[in-house]
Design a protein around this nucleic acid. Sequence first.
DNA 1: AAGTGGTCTAGACCACCAC
DNA 2: TGGTGGTCTAGACCACTTC
Lengths: 244, 244
Amino acid sequence: MTQENRPSPQFKPLYEQVKELIIERIVGGVWKPGEVLPSEFQLADMLNVSQGTVRKALNTLTEENVVFRRQGVGTFVSKHTLQEMLFHFFRFKHHLGESADLPTADIIDLQIMGAEPKVALALNLASDDKVIRLHRVRIINGDPCIRELIYLPHHYFGDLHLEAALPHALYNFYQNTFNITIHNAVDSITADLSNATDAKLLNIEVGQPLLEVARVATALDGRLVEYSISRAHSKNLHYEVKIT
Amino acid sequence: MTQENRPSPQFKPLYEQVKELIIERIVGGVWKPGEVLPSEFQLADMLNVSQGTVRKALNTLTEENVVFRRQGVGTFVSKHTLQEMLFHFFRFKHHLGESADLPTADIIDLQIMGAEPKVALALNLASDDKVIRLHRVRIINGDPCIRELIYLPHHYFGDLHLEAALPHALYNFYQNTFNITIHNAVDSITADLSNATDAKLLNIEVGQPLLEVARVATALDGRLVEYSISRAHSKNLHYEVKIT
DNA sequence: AAGTGGTCTAGACCACCAC
DNA sequence: TGGTGGTCTAGACCACTTC
């Protein structure tokens, strides 16, 4: 890898090119979640750059949670099974007590269907594309408190709708089964009143205030891979945001 | 500044010490918001470290929005007047259209009072400490849509409650008038129903769903300096979170 | 032309971990 | 003991801004 003597047509720093190459190999399955990457010096030799340049690329990947590093051991591809990663994308917390147990989930419905306009827009799908819709209720400490509708493009998730038993940790499942790593997400939060369906599934009355979180999630390679609506009864829960 | 030959009692990297020294000087008013810092080499000479170590400190400060850098020009202390900084701490957005105009504000009430337990707990105050409470309504595109209750420790904000005209960009005001720079914040979001006061001030009916955002904000030096409750009618607004 | 931050390299030494 | 990442330094060269 060389920078060459070009003036500046779409100049990209070497460490960004290194970073992209590493992401490519993770996306391509060369290095799988949990596995160790070659050492800094090995990568530097492989790519014909200096160790310092590899270090800079790996450090930015560490900040983005793509890899994690352990001194004396090595650099590893992040897995969504890690506690920190699970709670990184699950932002509901109990009001007072520390972060609760991870929620379990009851599946209400799982089907393949045409993409509604709202869903097609969010996932940038054509109007005749199919999506898999998962409808489930999250249960925390025995209480049903969040109702989720999750939409996945059929062409990315193949036969997911035929799975006998879906685990409740979906992001980990996407990663293990489809090599799709959720990398970032945008949540849009509004308030709404519980309707009849909410009331029945969350065991509350109609007309209660609910938090509604609409999420669009993007994979490591930049594809839009999940649209979800979470409706939460906030009597015991809140959504927490740290602004830094 | 030296690392010395100590084994490892509370070892701190040089670049962190450099970073802390720079923050100290910003907090102390040596370098004020908008002003330029000495160059990397000047700082390196002042602190007896290498330019690379100063660079690392400045880069982390850049990521944390404490300073910003312009190639060929210099490194500057961040100001809350910058568009990006304003919207960094204001997370409400219009549903479809791009980010709206900055809101203005109508002040409903401004007084000094004893800290209620909830407020004292959030700001870590003693029960007999005084707080300044500002009650106002945010207006976006002519619509009153957010009602805010803002609590400030009296001993940090002195005579703020005597101000004739408070600007609506408060964080910029804190910075200019008290040299208090809001650095990070934790928002806890819940849903609630509008009460009589909400209804009157936001020009809606009682029993409508509202987003309630409780914020605890921390200054550059780590002091808890603001507790606020924002109650927003989410018909036209949502709260947006980018998880990366 | 001079000065700034941005990139890239090379090398030294340290702290941590596994064997 | 050997290999890993973590810190720190020194220096070269580039890109950008200002004068």
